[in-house]
Amino acid sequence: MKFVICLTELAGFTSYTGGVGRRYAATIPELARQGHDVTVVLVADSAIVSAPAEIDGVTVVVNTDLVRLPWRLRSLPRVLLFRRILSRIEAENVYVPEWLGSCSFAPRNVNLVTNLVASLGLITEIAGPDAVARRSALKSWLDRFQIWCEDRQIRRSMAVIACSSAILDWNSKRFAGKLPDGRVVANCINVERASGIARTAQVPHLWPTGPGPVVVFAGRVQLIKGIDVAMSAFRDVAAQFEDARFVIAGGEGDTTIDPSLEQLQSELDPSLRDRTVFLGQIDEESLYACMREATVVVCPSRWEAFGNIALEVRASGGVLIATTGSGFSESCDDMVDSLLVEPGNPEALAAAIIRVVSDATLRARLLEDGRRRVDDFTASTTAARLSLQLESIWN
């Protein structure tokens, strides 16, 4: 089967990549190995660190025009760039995430399938009206345009493939029964690669030293990721363990709606200032090393479409606390491979942290079961499931 994958980030190519860029980097070579003729169109949203013409037999078409523009002004040029490139290469079947609505103006002859991963509409809903009200007039207009593009792309699609049942259900409600044919194919990571990196990677030089437990918050500093919940829980944990230290491993989100690192530091409880380290955005190797060395890693998201980070924590050799009610449930079983707590509840998160820190037997069991379960979410397994669904749709 011949098809095109459209992206704005890709691990190994773009200087910034989140879970989407790492997941596609793991899946794309597997699709080629399974016999598909895949072309990647990468309209980069950050600087290019490497740009080979192909990777593992997959042709990669790279465009860097957006990097020259202020990021706030990229929405319209982005959709026009993708339309132009898809027309030039005469794309027929296209698979693309809904984030940014990159293919909302794809040529009419394109058979579009959208991957539901995390739309701005969803993020805005979770952030709430107070956060939205803090946006400038320009930012508010640009966000509405992005949401319109994402919705247009979804409506324009032949079908949607969701990374979890949770995000498929959310979109079904949003589109009030008019969502295209929906399927679920769980996310994946390159498990072997993540485990290999974690075994040898070095922690950042700011990593705390000493014998006490280290609690790591892994994720961008965003309200949707529960950074405020984590900071509140840390206070209760600090009162229980005098030698506990806390590490924030993630860069800033959108500071018009999320707290900046500087704001978090300035508002930090005085009793925590000498016990909390803000690493900011760190590279993949450093992140995996932090997960490996942590006593426990917390991902207290208010909502996750899937939560690739849950797989990365366990592949790295970390013990995970995540949240109920969204995409984490696709790959996590409470008290089996992780602990799951109610989102937005700092008391529940603190109690779970204290429980894990206090119980070495529980930590060892969660670590063992977590690492074994993550093998269900390898790139080859996900690529095979994705292939079946795409073939079913396009044939």
Rank of each mutant, 00 (worst) to 15 (best):
K173F: 09
R174C: 03
F175H: 04
F175C: 03
F175Y: 12
G177W: 14
K178V: 10
K178R: 15
L179S: 00
L179E: 00
P180E: 13
D181C: 15
D181F: 09
G182F: 04
R183H: 15
R183D: 07
R183E: 11
V184D: 00
V184W: 02
A186H: 08
A186I: 03
N187I: 05
N187Y: 06
C188W: 02
I189V: 14
I189T: 07
I189F: 08
I189L: 15
I189N: 07
N190W: 08
N190F: 05
V191I: 10
R193I: 05
R193L: 14
S195I: 08
G196K: 10
A198E: 04
A198C: 04
R199V: 10
R199Y: 10
R199W: 08
T200H: 11
A201F: 06
Q202M: 15
V203D: 00
P204T: 02
P204R: 03
H205P: 08
W207A: 04
P208W: 02
T209W: 08
P211E: 14
G212Y: 01
G212A: 00
P213F: 04
P213H: 02
V214K: 11
V216G: 01
V216P: 00
A218H: 00
G219E: 09
R220A: 07
R220Y: 04
Q222T: 14
L223P: 02
L223F: 11
I224R: 12
K225M: 01
K225S: 04
I227R: 01
I227Y: 00
D228G: 15
V229W: 08
V229Y: 11
A230W: 13
A230N: 08
S232F: 07
S232H: 11
A233N: 06
F234A: 13
F234I: 06
R235V: 09
D236P: 01
D236S: 13
V237P: 07
V237K: 10
A239V: 12
A239R: 13
F241N: 10
F241D: 10
F241V: 09
D243M: 10
D243T: 10
D243N: 14
A244V: 03
A244F: 03
F246Y: 02
F246S: 01
F246C: 00
V247E: 03
V247M: 04
V247C: 04
A249G: 13
G250H: 06
G250E: 06
D254H: 07
T256H: 15
T256A: 15
I257E: 11
I257P: 04
P259D: 05
P259Q: 05
P259G: 04
S260D: 02
S260N: 00
L261W: 13
Q263H: 10
Q263N: 07
Q263A: 14
Q263R: 09
Q263V: 07
L264Y: 07
Q265P: 06
S266M: 05
